[in-house]
Design a protein around this nucleic acid. Sequence first.
DNA 1: CCAACTATACAATAATTCTTGAAATATAAA
DNA 2: TTTATATTTCAAGAATTATTGTATAGTTGG
Lengths: 112, 112
Amino acid sequence: MDKQLATILFESLASGIRLDIFRLLVKHAPTGLVAGEISTALALPPTNASFHLKAMTYASLINVTQEGRYQRYRANLTVMQSLIDYLTAECCTGNPDYCFDATKASSCCDTD
Amino acid sequence: MDKQLATILFESLASGIRLDIFRLLVKHAPTGLVAGEISTALALPPTNASFHLKAMTYASLINVTQEGRYQRYRANLTVMQSLIDYLTAECCTGNPDYCFDATKASSCCDTD
DNA sequence: CCAACTATACAATAATTCTTGAAATATAAA
DNA sequence: TTTATATTTCAAGAATTATTGTATAGTTGG
C-alpha cells in the first residue's frame, strides 16, 4: 500500500454514494450484486451508479466479473484490509508510544 | 462513528496534500507543529496550507490550539482509531466469515 | 504605541468531480 | 434474425473543490 493507492482508495470512499455501494456489497459478500441490483437498491439512475462503480473498480475497491449481459460486482475485502493496515501504520509512524495499541501492525513505521 | 463523519474523514484523507499534512503531524506527535512549520516542510503557500488545515480541523482529523500568535496543529489519533474501527466493522458487516480476522471488532455489524 | 510577524479570511480563477439523458454496445431470448 | 434487456459511454451542464495573491486580524517585542 503506497500513498498513491491510499489516496485513490480514500477518494473512492469519500462519497456517500460510493460508501453506500461498498457497504451494500460487503453485506452481500461473497455473492456480490449485478449493476442493476445496485442501482435499484440505492435508487440511483443507472448511469450514475455506473459512474461510481467504474471509479471504485479503478481504485480496486471492488471487482467486477461478467455474467452474460450482467456485470457482477463484489467488494474487495483484501484491499480494504490493506487500507486498514496502512492507516494503522500511519498512526504509529515513528511514535508507537502515542498511538493506542496499534504497535502490533506489521508494516508499522514504513515511509511512503 | 456514523456514515457522515466517516465520509468527511475520507474526504479529508483523499488529497495528497492533506495526507501529507496528516502524516507529518503523526510523525511529530504529540508535540505537533505550528502552521508555518507545516507550510515550510511541505513547500506550500501559507494560504493553501491554511485552506487544507481548516478542512482537516473541521473534520476533526487534526486539532488546533493557539500559542500566542502561533497555531499549533496535532494529529487526532483517537478519531483515526475510530475510523479504523469503523472500516473494520464495515468489512465484516453481516459477513464475518468472509472478512479476514476482523471479527474481534467491537462495533462489528452496526448499521449507519 | 509602533513595527514586525503569524496566520487566516476574502476574492477571483482554475480545475475537478458529479449528475443525468440520450446513444451505443453487447448479450439473451423469441 | 429480430426484439428486448443490461450496462456502459458520451456529452453537457451543474456543483464542488483547489489554488493563489492580497488584505485583514491578532500577537509579540521594542
